[in-house]
């Protein structure tokens, strides 16, 4: 059981939750499965990327989550001192860039959460962040100390106007770039296409409906290299050219 040390809003519908104690040896891109104890509904745990690792007094982790349904709605109503059940760290994270590689991260909305630990570990490069408006862009705030941040908003209220995918091409123009992306699956597919066209190495962090998070229910299948692989245990990070994007749902 982990205790909530903070749980506050950071952007529209998005919260940052600190949990202590933390989990051991987190790699950037790994996730935890969280459950609010007590009830049978919702029954299953919910997966969240580890956003940050907290040092000092028992250690801890942070997640940044968006309220989209019942589980996340309940999480948002919890307060400091409440307890949740945390399983993890789970999955395979992002590989580090090569010595001379340029780093480009592409994030859609709360997808930025899975890239933050990686950005901290790497400490340079460019983040291309896409959100609906300037308030969403607060999700990219922590990255400003770590790397160059470029904002794209759908309503043009901050940065450039449009979808983040429209600006990926110019960003990864050069060879010797590695791309890390997380966001809605349609966005990841576009980013992957561009990266593959350019022959640029690109890693995507996928989502999927999960029950166990540890590779045993075979529920979170994604088609990769002609076979079903599990997002939770073979991923969530995949090389973009492994994924059979045609076989993806929505």
């Amino acid at each position: 059981m982990a205790r909530i040390v903070h749980n506050y809003p950071v952007a529209p519908g998005c919260y940052r939750m600190g949990l202590s104690p933390g989990v051991d040896r987190v790699e950037p891109g790994q996730f935890v499965m969280i459950r609010i104890p007590g009830g049978l509904d919702p029954l299953l745990r919910r997966p969240f990327s580890v956003y940050n690792v907290l040092r000092g007094r028992g250690g801890g982790i942070e997640i940044v989550y968006k309220v989209v349904g019942r589980g996340t709605g309940m999480m948002a109503s919890l307060g400091v001192g409440d307890e949740v059940d945390v399983l993890g760290p789970l999955g395979r994270g992002f590989p580090m860039p090569g010595k001379k590689e340029r780093v480009v991260m592409v994030a859609g909305g709360v997808g930025v959460a899975s890239l933050h630990l990686l950005a901290k570990r790497i400490g340079y490069g460019t983040l291309l962040f896409g959100g609906r408006n300037r308030r969403d862009a607060r999700l990219a705030g922590d990255f400003r100390d770590l790397m160059e941040v470029k904002i794209v908003t759908e309503d043009g209220s901050m940065g450039r106007k449009g979808f983040v995918t429209e600006f990926v091409e110019e960003e990864i123009g050069e060879e010797g770039t590695v791309v890390y992306a997380c966001g809605p699956s349609a966005m990841l597919e576009k980013v992957s296409c561009i990266a593959m066209d350019r022959g640029v190495r690109c890693y995507v962090s996928l989502e999927g409906m999960m029950a166990c998070g540890m590779g045993v229910c075979l529920g979170c299948a994604v088609k990769a290299d002609g076979a079903y692989r599990m997002v939770c245990s073979d991923g969530p990070v995949f090389r973009c050219d492994e994924i059979d994007w045609q076989g993806m749902d929505g």
């Binding site: 029954l43 999927g208 409906m209 229910c217 075979l218 979170c220 299948a221 994604v222 088609k223 749902d249």
Partner: peptide, 23 residues
Amino acid sequence: RAGNPPPRIVETPCGMLNSIGLQ
């Protein structure tokens, strides 16, 4: 056996549905 395409699971009240397809 390869099993069924995703989505293979969905949560329902106090339970879940699966169509793993015996992978």
